[in-house]
Each structure stands twice: as C-alpha cells, then as structure tokens.
Amino acid sequence: MEETPIVVARGLTKIYRSRDGAPAFRAVDGIDFSFGRGEAFGFLGPNGAGKSSTMRMLAAISPASGGSLEVLGMDPALDGPRIRARIGVVPQDDCLDRELSVRENILVYGRYFGLRRDLIRERLGELLAFAQLEEKADAQVEVLSGGMRRRLTIARSLINRPEILLLDEPTTGLDPQARHILWDRLYRLKQDGVTLIITTHYMDEAEQLCDRLAVMDGGRIVAEGSPRALIEAHVTREVLELRFSVDAHAAVAERLRDRRLGERVELLPDRVVVYAHDGEAALAQVHAAQLSPITALVRRATLEDVFLKLTGRSLID
C-alpha cells in the first residue's frame, strides 16, 4: 500500500498489572504493523497470543503500555471518543440487548454515536437488508439463531458507517453454512472500501478473508505476509499426513527423518506429518520403506502448517 496507512503501530506493548497475587502479564510484546485503507488484515494465533489485547488497543478502549499507536491519524490515548466514532467493533460474544428487537438494537446503538433518529431509520433498512434480517426486524434477539445474531452484531456495528471494522473471532461457534454467509457479507464490505481487521484461529477463515496476515504467538508477531506468501516462505507445497497405531508414531518419525523423507518430518500426538513438494512421491517412499500407515493423506499446505512450523504448536488446542 502506497498511500498513508490508516493504522500504524510501532513497538506496541500491553502489560496487565499484577492483580490478586498474579504476576504482571505481558500480553502484547512490542509489535509493529500498519494497514492501508480498504485492506483486510488478519491476526492469526491461538488463544492467549495477544490478538484480543491488540484489538482492544486498536479500538481505543485499552491504553497501550508502551510503543506508539496511531489510528486514523489520532492517538487513542487522547482521542478515544473521536476514534471510536469512526470505527466499528464486532465483539466475540455478540453482546446484543436480548430483550430488545432487532430493529431496536440497531436504533439504540446508533444513538450511542449521537446519530439523529431519522438518519438511523434511513440506514436501518439498508443494514437489515445487508444482514438478511428484514423479516426478523421486529423479532426479539432472544429467538434469533447464532448466525443471525452475528449478522445483527455486524449490521449494528455498521450504523456509524465505520472506516475500520474490527472483528474478533467473527465465525467462532457458527455452523459451516452460517460461516459462509458471513464471509460473503464481509467480502461485500471489503468491496465497499471498509478496512477489515480480523482475529481468528481458523486458517481457512484467514485464507478466505485476509489480504495480509500477522501470525501471533506469545504476544509477538512471528511472521507477516499474504496467506500464499506465508505458505510459500515457511512450508512446502504439499503435506503428507500419516497415521499409525498411537505408540508407533515416535519410532516412525525417527525412521522417516533418517531416510530424509521430504523437507521436514513433524511428530504430532495423533499423526506424523511430512512436508514435501510432491506428496504422492513421499508416500511411495513410505511404502518402499515397508511402513504401512493406517491412513495416509496428501493435501495442500495450509496456514495451520505455517503456524506449526513457526511455533511448534497446533493452532487449535
């Protein structure tokens, strides 16, 4: 992105003060990043990687403990309300007013931004259409499905026409169909020029939605780039997954390493993973070595593999 970025962080740090005997906790440990307008940026990492803390600082609702942060050209510590007036936030657990109707939820939220009632009503129809909730406009939130609630939360967060939309784990807990509907809605937003900042621990989601990703672990950014670039830089094109009886895995991994199979052999609790440019060829070598796996699967490498390589841990624990 050549134009001036709308978010710039340098050495951004978040330390939670010690409380009730627990030691101080460094949740975000000096990270740098910047986003351009209209970009879709993802923070990928397991629970506790520092994604949510970073998002809270971006939303100007949590003061940075160190480093610098600029959102829309302003300092969150000084201009909190002005920044918040121009961004939208979709929290992980929807936090809707369950007693109120769909329409009222949006109306009430718009009032928090000081928007005039007639302006909110004007935008309401378009937001309900966007969220595919026109028929549910007068239903109480209580009766909505999880996917509908999430779409309502997104519609609600758009009432102030935000320039940046922060989404924390947008599809966690949704069924596959609801996830696809949601992704489709987010695409449209991106097309309209809204900057999307997403945290997720689903690599398929990150691949689907994000132009650029930062892989986080232990409060640091351990890698950054487009999904494809990350895969190319850190893992092979294909992956061979082998399952044997559980107590045989360690010995098998050892043998495959001795035979220099593929680029790298990784031992996981439930399987052995071989990174190779040609998965089928690697599988043939396995059979040639007189090994007979219970199951064998050749697939394309994903971000999950990138994460495993970078951190030595699986993304979803």
Partner: peptide, 14 residues
C-alpha cells in the same frame, strides 16, 4: 451475563 458493556465501550460513550 449479557456483557452489554463490551458492545457499548467501543462506541463514543465514555
């Protein structure tokens, strides 16, 4: 339970 303030804090309300 409802975590209402998580939705309100990110708005301009102080």
């Amino acid at each position: 339970n409802e975590r209402s303030y998580d939705a309100i804090v990110p708005t301009p309300l102080s």
